[in-house]
Design a protein around this nucleic acid. Structure first.
Lengths: 157, 157
DNA sequence: ATGAATGCAAAGCGTTTGCATCTGG
DNA sequence: CCAGATGCAAACGCTTTGCATTCAT
């Protein structure tokens, strides 16, 4: 499955090019290792990993590269309350989605939330299970006075 | 609805007593205001609120009281990525729960996850809706080889 | 009385950043 | 060449703590 890493790397390089940023040796090392490890990792832990490959790389570069990945949508920052920010690589663009159903007009909106998915998986793991699939439905009402999809003067589908 | 604040305060005092801790004037002021505001608030913001009532209260006391509330299960720490920890008051003990269904034996486990609920609410809000209710079902398989509830040699309920 | 709580200031600690020096395009 | 990138060390900003004093029980 290292092809998905190459794929991610390619996406990374493309993003850099599109943003007019440079593809440096340090970034290659950091980002590749980041995707290889494929787990939430702190800047410091990442530094150790990277130092093992290229000792000259400094903390600031790792820090800035991780931030770069976040800005490019290739990693998401996480906080577990221990005062350290950790980053998780993002491979997929658009995984399975969940739904929000308007209780007023029954309109169904799709959404996709990384944090939600993460938490869900954590919950299952903590309970000693491995998540297979999930079903999440949020029933809510529009906060603006006039629900743009009121069934009142419009026939429901 | 200030009765629910009194209720929360009472619960707080009870927790203190049970833990052999002291009910001080500062704690009363901080905790009451905290429940009154009923929103995620940072230590610094809390300090400002509290100073308006009792100028002599110091940052450390607010900090420690918020931490105390967390330890007592009356507040939950939150991180929004801005580097500051915020706390949210918890009034209910055990809100509605969600389910995890074992795909192997169909056993249904209940769980309640604060972080999950928070995120769910945030999602609805971000989408411009106000959450009314939710339906969350996680389908998962036991990670230990022998599912303790295998239907094979035991009749299903 | 007396151990816990408070307030202040200092120490911690992870995160950012200024700057002189490199380097990819 | 030259704007962007790097490394180092210093600066930050929020969190946590040591300690003498005060307070609740």
């Amino acid at each position: 499955m290292s092809e998905r890493i190459d794929e991610a790397m390619e996406k990374f390089r493309t993003r850099l090019r599109e943003a007019g940023l440079k593809s440096t040796h340090q970034r290659e090392v950091i980002v590749r290792r980041f995707f290889e490890l494929d787990k939430h990792i702190s800047t410091e832990e990442m530094l150790i990993e990277v130092k093992a490959i290229q000792p000259s790389i400094g903390y600031a570069t790792v820090y800035r590269t991780l931030k770069l990945l976040k800005d490019q949508g290739l990693a998401i920052p996480k906080n577990f309350g221990d005062g350290q920010t950790r980053y998780d690589p993002i491979f997929e663009q658009d995984p399975e989605h969940d739904h929000l159903i308007c209780v007023t007009c029954r309109k169904i909106l799709e959404f996709n939330d990384e944090k939600l998915s993460e938490r869900i998986e954590e919950i299952a793991n903590d309970m000693g299970y491995k998540l297979v699939r999930k079903k999440i439905e949020l029933y809510a009402e529009c906060t603006t006075e006039n629900c743009p999809n009121m069934p009142s003067q419009d026939s429901k589908s």
